[in-house]
Design a protein around this nucleic acid. Structure first.
Lengths: 263, 263
DNA sequence: ACCAATGGTGACAATAATGAACCGATGGGA
DNA sequence: TCCCATCGGTTCATTATTGTCACCATTGGT
């Protein structure tokens, strides 16, 4: 299960907005791989432009290659830019931080963030890899994904990100069932303390979830009224978003939308 | 010399704007690696979100992971967005296609394109990996790079992209010397037939070239007058661009600018 | 019905990855 | 000033990973 390429690629996961440059030893420590090995992998990735080391300092950072790759994907299948618009609309309407993420292998990749303008807001460490089981976005996506993906993900041990994180697979399956009924997922400090997230899935042309949009609020500020407001905004934005990327919500989701509209 | 990670990563190079989705056998054929091996690598890269296979078809395409990586790099070191502005200005002023590229390992990665609005224009296959020795951008960058990089690149065999491509290392070194004097590089159908390119380097904080901006014109339409016009525009745009990304042109380049201004 | 592709899988020999020890440089503290 | 810790980077024998090849199951064109 531990191919060399996998180890090399997982090094990329450590780069995020909060830590865009990392040193050799640091990466070795985090990944638990030997320094020599990490060094060799980094050299190869530099050779291919995925990484580069800043001239003066001895730190590694993401290279120009990733810009090219993203450009290619974005011109062929534009989604990132479409998401960004929705995020801005959401953030402006609710006055809280909104973010979007897409399925990226066995986790979620944050591909857009729009912070609220107000002072006390959730300033999430963007660009990070999000686990499926502890985030509202993860649950929202998982609830409308292929069962095989759910099984594969829940088979692995689930890390407790906070004291409230559900780590039992069966508990999560039950929550997914709820999400399928309501059409949205909530995460009350299960991924980060003091952060309450509400997320809604976004779909592909074939009716499976590909990502999610979400609003994150400081937990102490969340009220029932704000909840309803956010959920309504998410439903509206999800619809325009699905239209924008050619997503077709499955019947189960459309039923949830109808139930919410009737209430 | 052929690490597995290198082979895996080089698979990514085959994805471009003209071919955003590729099948297993096709990739195996192009890379010259066995099908089984390629399959294993693709599986790993899918697992990490660098690639993904479209639900219905059996084709692989770049995954959401690359969007995240690009976002991280771009928020930490914004260059792509700055370049795009310059490209639009250039293209509008000259009326021809402009593009930008950055050093990405042992090649150039196109990170931005702005096509001219007129009918007959150079519509380059964007998002591709560009060789250093056959493109104006490559020569422009190489002329102001560290000698070690030049040596490393010219040590390898140079592919003839067209009948005019210089493949002799010494010939190229001579051209680099010219570029150092003039401050810009020209490529008359050395990378693609009927395409005449003029490029100018863009610098890093430490005075080494990191990329280039270029204008591509259908070769039959190039005139001496247009040449001068393009070069002047490139000089102007390169200056604002260097200011925008904090680049510091070295003395050799500043001297070239002065010589051009005096003429 | 055929044939030639395609995507995908399994087992074994060969190769490439591994990690401990080591080096020189740097920098901070006592 | 000396010392020690840490850094990036390198070397080399051991061993686990990889590449090869042979084989399926499907698909689509003739």
């Amino acid at each position: 299960m531990s191919s060399t390429v996998a180890k090399a690629l997982s090094l990329l996961d450590y780069f995020s907005d909060s830590e865009p440059e990392i040193g050799l030893s640091e990466l070795a420590r985090r990944s638990g791989v030997d320094k020599a090995t990490v060094h060799r992998m980094l050299a190869v990735m530099c050779d291919h432009g995925l990484l580069e080391k800043r001239g003066d300092a001895r730190l590694y950072r993401l290279g120009a290659g990733v810009l090219r790759l993203a450009r290619v994907r974005e011109t062929a299948f534009p989604v990132s830019s479409v998401f960004q618009q929705s995020l801005e609309a959401l953030s402006a309407q609710i006055g809280e931080t909104a973010h979007a993420s897409l399925i990226s292998g066995r986790a979620l990749a944050t591909i857009g963030v729009c912070e609220a303008s107000r002072g006390s807001r959730v300033s999430l460490v963007a660009g990070e890899i999000l686990p499926f089981h502890s985030t509202a976005s993860g649950l929202a996506v998982l609830a409308f994904s292929r069962p095989e993906l759910v099984d594969r993900l829940l088979a692995e041990p689930l890390a407790a990100r906070t004291s409230r994180t559900p780590t039992d697979a069966e508990v999560i399956r039950a929550r997914l069932q709820e999400v399928r009924l309501t059409g949205y997922a909530e995460a009350d400090q299960t991924n980060e303390d003091d952060v309450y997230g509400i997320a809604m899935p976004v779909f592909d042309t074939d009716g499976t979830a590909t990502g999610a949009i979400a609003v994150a609020v400081p937990a102490h500020r969340m009220t029932n009224d704000l909840r309803r407001q956010i959920i309504a905004a998410l439903f509206a934005e999800a619809e325009t978003l699905n239209a924008g990327i050619g997503g077709r919500p499955p019947a189960t989701f459309r039923a949830a939308v109808a139930r919410f509209g009737a209430a």
